[in-house]
């Protein structure tokens, strides 16, 4: 097998390998490298108690309760399912109802989640606060600006 033939064969082989690999990876990575789970994803798979996981979603409107100065509970939702969360600690600036958040912690039981850390997740929209209030006043405000 001559040197040029070896190379030619190898080029073809590499191309096939790369195509297969991209297909394998794209097919399999859809949900696997998630930094967090959404509440709905958690409902489908069985909830593991006492295992560190992260849940991401929005803080449900009208669910935020301040129990004491540093203890809070709220629900985290993705519009389909929601999970009840207990948290003791300091909340980040951006944390408020309707805002995205990622929480890290353990399930106390099937329904109650004990958060150890709360991250606020902000979206890719940036806009001046003056315009936002104008938009709200005129009724044009929606999340997908």
């Amino acid at each position: 097998m001559s040197l040029r033939y070896q190379r030619l064969l190898l080029i073809i082989l590499s191309l096939i390998l790369i195509i297969t690999a991209t297909m394998l990876i794209l097919y399999n990575t859809r949900e696997n490298i998630s930094y967090f789970y959404t509440p709905s994803e958690l409902n489908y798979s069985n909830i593991k108690i006492n295992k560190l996981i992260r849940i991401g979603g929005f803080v449900e409107k009208n669910s935020f309760n301040k129990v004491s100065s540093s203890t809070f509970n709220f629900r985290i939702t993705d519009d389909l399912n929601s999970i009840y969360v207990n948290y003791t600690g300091i909340l980040p600036d951006l944390f408020r109802e309707g805002q995205g958040a990622v929480i890290e912690g353990y399930f106390q039981n099937e329904k109650v989640f004990n958060a150890k850390t709360v991250f606020a997740k902000h979206d890719e929209n940036y806009m001046p606060s003056s315009i936002k209030s104008k938009l709200e006043n005129s009724g044009y405000w929606n999340k997908n600006y």
Partner: peptide, 24 residues
């Protein structure tokens, strides 16, 4: 992760890519 098969799939994908890159 619970989904063992798909992670094996990703690993073999990485494997194939390294195989394709390595000789060159």
């Amino acid at each position: 992760n619970e989904n063992f098969n798909s992670l094996v799939g990703i690993l073999s994908g990485i494997l194939l890519i390294t195989f394709a890159v390595n000789p060159w």
